[in-house]
Design a protein around this nucleic acid. Structure first.
Lengths: 328, 328
DNA sequence: ATGAAAGCGCTAACAG
DNA sequence: CTGTTAGCGCTTTCAT
């Protein structure tokens, strides 16, 4: 930068201004500096500016599993949003362990301006501690201590159960996801919705890892349940359930109707295409970035929570209960 | 750090040593410092150390599409490997445009110690330019100017074609991927393998985007091709082809055998499970990180290329050609 | 083994 | 609008 300054015949601070506050420099000086910088192939050193400013221009994103399309889509949206706001993304895959996630979060927090936690597995207390030591926003989850954006759980479940009830299903099974440190309350909406529409929630299977294989395992438990419809906590599980049933020689939606509680490219892509509760991941990701950036600007502001509406996308995996179902 | 030094009754440089070169400090002094640090909740500022050392402890990873399971798995492996080597990951999603990718790469390169390009869409010249200005390693691609790790294309294709030939397929179609700036030579292995096993390469459809939808589109072109088997350049395309055929009322492998040229969780997860050319993504990712780290240590070393063996995983999507096939 | 001191490259008052 | 002057918090010789 000093070299550029000399080459352009200005002071080093002017060069700095050209790059960080271009408008505060007269146009012709700026051009001279830019020209010199180009000739010398100069670009500002981000580490130095990070140190001087106390800002890295970097956001941290933590997800439990990069390979899960749900998180992959969030990553994609977040990365793009961050980029349009001139930030880069530090990504970390935490796995399902709360402690690991917490430890990783602290590390990442140290080298970024703020933390985005997507589907965090940690407790509210952990989230609170992170939020106390730096800007934090939650994506797809809620906690009192941090800004958050998430899908409205109650209305989403209502949409699902209402759909199944309307088709004539009276007994359903809910295949739960990973039991994490945050989940205790997460099952309430299902119960409430079932009650509202007079549906019998036969059983909650699980917790299962949110994976295909565990969906297959869950499928084995279905035939004896007496249910005619299944709700899967996530797409990969739903998919596993579908395949598991197929291997038993049962069909979807002939023998069981199946609903997935998220909706990425997989839901419409597998066979049969899944009726799914669509969660607006693009909005969630973008909103998460905005919330975080806002908090970075105003660390003291009031905590904001942003529930987003879901929509039920009816595809091929749900139908009227078959004449023969339940039992074995 | 100064505070910790005072609290521990040592100089600030000793504190620094405790964190960066622990072995150069006597055990009891070290403990005293660590204790003081703990009490004051001190952690070293990465930005400052980055500036002083000229090292950020950060690796950049560029992928064309985060949502593609192929890249998602690479991201996951790379992140974990980087982490075990005490580096964090800056992730960027470039899309398919070479220029965008190149621009993003320059940005990311500036704030990391080195760049990992997975499935880069840019030209060898661009890769060369990046490699000249900083450490670069390629994952799943090859270029003279940079270290690289990739699947051996020739032997992989031989495995695929040989399998199809053995089943009795004499006419096949290859559904190509996105045409990028790097591709001109990528089709050679298919031709060679077809020749070797006396198979007729009826047509190369494409380029198609590497997406499900384009797979569906490709499927529409198959019935008139006279082929009995299809090779898809990637899993999502393969999946699209399978669904497209299903919509036409054709079956896999009954009417067409189908092989996918990569193999992530999707291949065994969809219906029918795909016969696929397995590429060792875990090795590729880890190797990529190692190559890059090595080059960061020794910027002058000789360029290393690391082809990895593939293996054909036979599942349900391939079989003998059906009695009625081709035509319409 | 530890301390003193000189930066790393940039930003940010503060003058002018 | 531009130059001067201090740092930002850590690493790293060079002494001791």
């Amino acid at each position: 930068m000093t070299d550029v300054a000399r080459a352009a015949g200005v002071s080093q601070s002017t060069v700095s201004r050209v790059f960080s506050l271009p408008d505060t420099v007269r146009a012709d000086t700026r051009d001279r500096v830019l020209e010199a910088a180009r000739r010398l192939e100069f670009t500002p050193n981000p580490a130095a500016s990070a140190l001087a400013q106390g800002r890295t221009g970097t956001l941290g994103l933590l997800v439990p599993n990069v390979v899960n399309p749900y998180y992959a889509e969030i990553i994609k949206v977040v990365q793009h949003r961050a980029r349009t706001k001139n930030h880069t993304l530090v990504l970390a895959d935490t796995g399902d362990d709360p402690e690991d996630g917490f430890a990783l979060a602290r590390t990442v927090a140290r080298q970024t301006d703020g933390l985005l936690l997507a589907g965090p597995r940690m407790t509210d207390a952990m989230v609170g501690e992170l939020a106390r030591s730096g800007p934090v926003a939650l994506i797809g989850a809620d906690a009192p201590a941090a800004d958050s954006v998430y899908a409205e759980p109650a209305t989403g479940m209502r949409q699902v159960i209402r759909h199944l009830a309307a088709l004539g299903h009276a007994r359903i099974v809910y295949v739960d996801g990973t039991l994490t440190a945050r989940d205790p309350a997460s099952r309430q909406p299902v119960h409430d919705a079932c009650e509202e529409f007079g549906v019998d929630l036969v059983e909650q299977l699980g917790p299962f890892d949110l994976t295909f294989d565990h969906g297959v395992a869950a499928a084995d438990l279905l035939p004896t349940s007496g249910a005619t419809a299944v709700i899967a906590h996530n797409e990969m599980v739903a998919h596993g359930v579908a395949c598991g049933l197929a291997r038993q020689g049962r069909s979807v939606p002939g023998d069981f109707s199946l609903v997935s509680v998220d909706d990425t490219f997989m839901a419409r892509t597998i066979y049969p295409a899944l009726t799914a509760l669509h969660v607006p991941l693009d909005l969630m990701g973008a909103r998460g970035v905005d919330l975080l950036l806002h908090r970075i600007e105003e660390p003291g502001g009031e905590v904001r929570h942003s529930p987003l509406p879901t929509s039920l996308v009816v595809r091929e995996s749900t139908g009227r209960p078959g004449p023969v179902s339940g039992g074995v």
